[in-house]
Structure formats: structure tokens, C-alpha cells
Simulated assay, not measured.
Amino acid sequence: MKRLVAALFVLGSALPCLAAEQGMSKGAFLKESQNVLAPLQFVKFCMNYASECERSSPEARLPAHDVALAALQEVNASVNQAISPVKKSTNPLLARWTISPSSGDCNDYAITKRHLLLSKGWPASALRLAVVFAPAGGHLVLIARLQDGDYVLDNLVPEVRDWRGSSYQWVSMESGEDPRFWVSIAKQDQRDFAELGNR
């Protein structure tokens, strides 16, 4: 519990990202667990960008799988190239998540990718900001939920990858029911990793 609280608290700061293992594979979905408090900086983000935290219209639909993967690759690559990495203030009163800045931290990369995909008509329930924990500290990534599993868009990894291809500890993410609320992520089944390693 202390680790979870620590990871959620430090999200407002610019935290280093770890390069995760790469490799795409069809896989399972991250499992939602209990309701948790949203990160403080996310709450501030929703105050500054209210439309980004609304449920999608009923017309919002996922593209076909191959088209969706291509769009994820394009958005991940373009945003990673467009934003220059910079360490931002860790002061909760000064920290701010910004869409499409010229320079920013992992939070800015993740919300910009989500913003671009929402603008293409993707449903909010398929685009979830997620807190992960690594030896270097807390980190924010974007999870895209496709028909066959959850995929990670990360600012230090050029390829979009299956979530099980990451070495991160999964902490929490936006709820699929309502993007304003957050849920903890259930501990993954180690059999999933054994299966992935045998491929």
C-alpha cells in the first residue's frame, strides 16, 4: 500500500522512464481491481482540460485492428518526436500536465497521445492513462485497449507493445466506465509471463 501511495503521489513530477522489453504479442487485458484516488495532477488536468475527461459519445468506435495498430504506431512515434524531454517541477502547486507542449515529461507525452486519438474518434474507454512503478520511480503511460488486448504507448519506447512485454509494475489506471475515475490494477497472473516468454 505504501508503494501504491508513493507512486500516485509522485506522478505530478517529471520522472525518468525505463526502457521496457519490446515485442508485440497478442495478449490479455489489464484487470481492474478496486477504486482508488486519481492522481492529484490528473485532477488538475481535468480542471484545465474538462473535455478530455468526459465520456465519449455513443458514436465513438475503435477502427479495425490493423488500422488501429497503425494509428497507435503513428501517434506514438509522432508525439515522441514532437516533444523534447525535460524534467519538470515536482512541486504539486507548480506541476501541470500540458497537451502538445514543445517540451515536457512523460505525463505530457501520455495525455497528448490520448488527445490525438480521441480527436480521431476513438472512445475514451479504450484510451486509459496508467500509472506504473519502476526502480526509477513513478511513470505515466497510455494504454490502448484493442479487441485482442491492451497495448502500451510510452515516450521512451518507439514501438507500441503488448502490456506484458513491459517490466513495469502496474499500479493504477483510468476506469473503463468513466475516465474521471481511477482503479487499481490487479496483480497479473505470472502464467501470462511464462506463456509470453515461451513465444
Rank of each mutant, 00 (worst) to 15 (best):
D105L: 03
L30K: 04
W97N: 06
P16E: 02
S184L: 05
F193V: 14
L37T: 07
V79C: 07
V79T: 04
S100W: 05
Y151A: 01
E59A: 13
G197R: 13
G121V: 08
T90P: 04
E195D: 12
G149Y: 08
A77P: 00
A68C: 12
D178G: 05
E32L: 10
P39I: 00
F42C: 00
I83H: 12
I83M: 12
N155T: 01
S89W: 10
R128S: 02
T112Q: 06
D189Y: 00
S103K: 12
R191F: 11
S100Y: 09
V152Y: 00
D105A: 10
F42R: 08
V67A: 14
P39F: 01
S25Q: 11
P123V: 04
A194Y: 02
K2H: 12
G165K: 11
N198R: 14
V152D: 01
S78T: 15
T112D: 02
N91T: 07
V160I: 09
F193K: 15
V152W: 02
R164W: 03
E177Q: 14
D66I: 00
N80T: 11
L116P: 01
T98Y: 06
V86F: 04
Q169D: 13
S102G: 05
G197M: 13
E52I: 00
A136V: 15
P101E: 09
F193M: 14
T90G: 08
D189F: 02
D150H: 04
E32N: 11
V86R: 11
A110M: 09
E195Q: 12
L18I: 13
A38I: 04
P92N: 03
F42N: 02
L8C: 03
G27P: 00
Q188F: 07
A134H: 11
I111C: 12
P58Q: 02
G176I: 03
S89C: 14
D148L: 02
P39V: 01
N76E: 10
N155W: 09
L118R: 15
G138E: 11
R96H: 14
R180S: 09
M24D: 11
M47S: 13
L40N: 01
L8W: 01
W97G: 09
T90S: 09
Q34K: 15
K44N: 05
S13Q: 07
K2F: 07
L37S: 13
F29C: 04
D162W: 06
D148E: 12
E174R: 06
D178W: 03
C17S: 13
G165I: 10
Y49N: 13
A144F: 03
F29M: 02
L4V: 13
G137I: 04
V5K: 08
V160Y: 03
L94K: 15
V183Y: 03
A38E: 08
A186P: 03
V157W: 08
G197S: 14
L118E: 11
